[in-house]
Write a protein that binds this DNA or RNA. Structure first.
Lengths: 250, 250
DNA sequence: CGAGCTTTTGAGCCGAATCAATTATCGTGG
DNA sequence: CCACGATAATTGATTCGGCTCAAAAGCTCG
């Protein structure tokens, strides 16, 4: 169980030096300028760890909103199910990401969030978060930043869907995913995708077959290597060119 | 000048009973449970009215972030300009909408926002908003709700782009626009679009010609009437079916 | 080891982009 | 006020990318 490819996010290899080893949430709040007493208060009030098995829903669309979640380990997929069709994937959540903000507006979650592998989250009631946000400026700032960052990511995806072709979207998707993994402390020339081709296709507004072909083309051009869900980036700058983004300066 | 079609949003026809006649922002805060003293404080601290001429930018991508804006009258278009290409439209803002939340994450605006017609906004510095949010719970709730609603709208668009064909996207776009106008107090079987076909196309991930053809088809099927930018909905339920959304119950 | 899923690969078709040309509208200056 | 150029919108013909349908091969897990 612990040796499945997907457990790579929880790797204990020190070369990866994961910053979230002891629980993402603690780290989220660890460096935003709270003193020991405040930090203790935050932890007591709002951290409720929870284990989520692969395939299990964190919440469903329409369900009454009460909690925000921070991903500690594993990964999740958010999406909505239209009245006729099947799931439309709207995003993927990795350790350090937060989900549930969509529920604030109407006090009901607008999407569903499902674990792609056995995962752990910190659950925090919105009321506690709101209270702490009023009392501790760094906490307020953190949550506003998390929501704002989500807005920016969404609009980036929007632009991507509007302006890139199939293969370019896949390139952009991979780049973004690797970038996010790097932010989380992985060296990230190679990783194991937690999501299926079908999930990727849905997220990118494509069909499974098209995504598969895009992977095949990227491999043929020697921009990546990929066997199943394991992917290695061979030529990042070419991928950036294809995705029409500036090469991030390391 | 005052009789251009675009001035319809500022119509003084009492039949439209626009709720924002005396300034959107005052109304935004008018009914969220503040007493007179608090309301006065809010107004003094954060309301800075500003007139924006057609074509003028409210802010640019990369510009230092300091203000949030509420649209009082007129309309705006948000978008980003990729390094090579031209503007990608990411949204349209109508009276009552707020823009600028994308700047919180990095303290720089992530997009640009341009007036589609002569418009008025209320500018409020983020610092004041943050302070008031800490001190007045209704203010905190309002801003969190505005940001959350934006997240929900974005993910709806994402799903739409991923799952609908060209004509269906145009149907969904028109329905959403009319719905938003109704929320703002317009009877909304007919209205004048503030944006061009090109803007709509960019927003929907299509080309101008395709949008034009979609309009032609919708007209041929008698679902709408449209001459230039003026549009009338003839068969809302058929439009909803085409856009694959449930008919909103009135 | 076999059932069911995921992924890959192929052939043909359809929808939207592209290229191109015309018409309509807006803004401007004569 | 009208004529003009510029921009926006429409319409047609053609091309091409991604979808559809179909089938086979690879994994995963009981």
């Amino acid at each position: 169980m612990n040796s499945t490819p997907h457990s790579s996010y929880e790797s204990s290899d020190p070369a990866f030096s994961p910053p979230f080893k002891r629980g993402v949430s603690a780290d989220i709040f660890g460096s935003i300028g709270l003193n020991a007493g405040e930090l203790d208060r935050v932890q007591k009030l709002i951290f409720v760890p929870r284990s989520i098995k692969k395939g299990q829903l964190l919440f469903q669309a329409g369900q009454k909103f009460s909690e925000i979640f921070a991903v500690r380990s594993g990964s999740f997929r958010s999406g909505v199910v239209p009245h006729d069709g099947d799931l439309n994937v709207t995003g993927f959540q990795l350790p350090g990401d937060m989900v549930g903000f969509d529920g604030i507006a109407t006090m009901r979650y607008a999407c569903e969030v499902q674990a792609l592998e056995d995962s752990e989250v910190s659950a925090m009631t919105f009321e506690h978060v709101a209270t702490l946000s009023r009392e501790l400026r760094p906490v307020q700032r953190l949550f506003l930043q998390m929501m704002s960052a989500q807005l920016v990511r969404d609009s980036e995806v929007l632009v991507m869907l509007g302006s890139l072709k199939a293969e370019e979207r896949v390139a952009a998707f991979l780049l973004k995913l690797f970038e996010r993994m790097e932010t989380r402390g992985f060296s990230a020339t190679e990783l194991v995708l937690p999501m299926s081709r079908h999930d990727i296709a849905s997220y990118l507004g494509l069909k499974t077959e098209t995504v598969s072909r895009a992977f095949a083309d990227l491999i043929a051009r020697r921009l990546i290597e990929a066997h199943q869900r394991s992917v290695t980036v061979l030529n990042r700058s070419a991928l950036c060119a294809m995705a029409k983004v500036a090469l991030p300066q390391d």
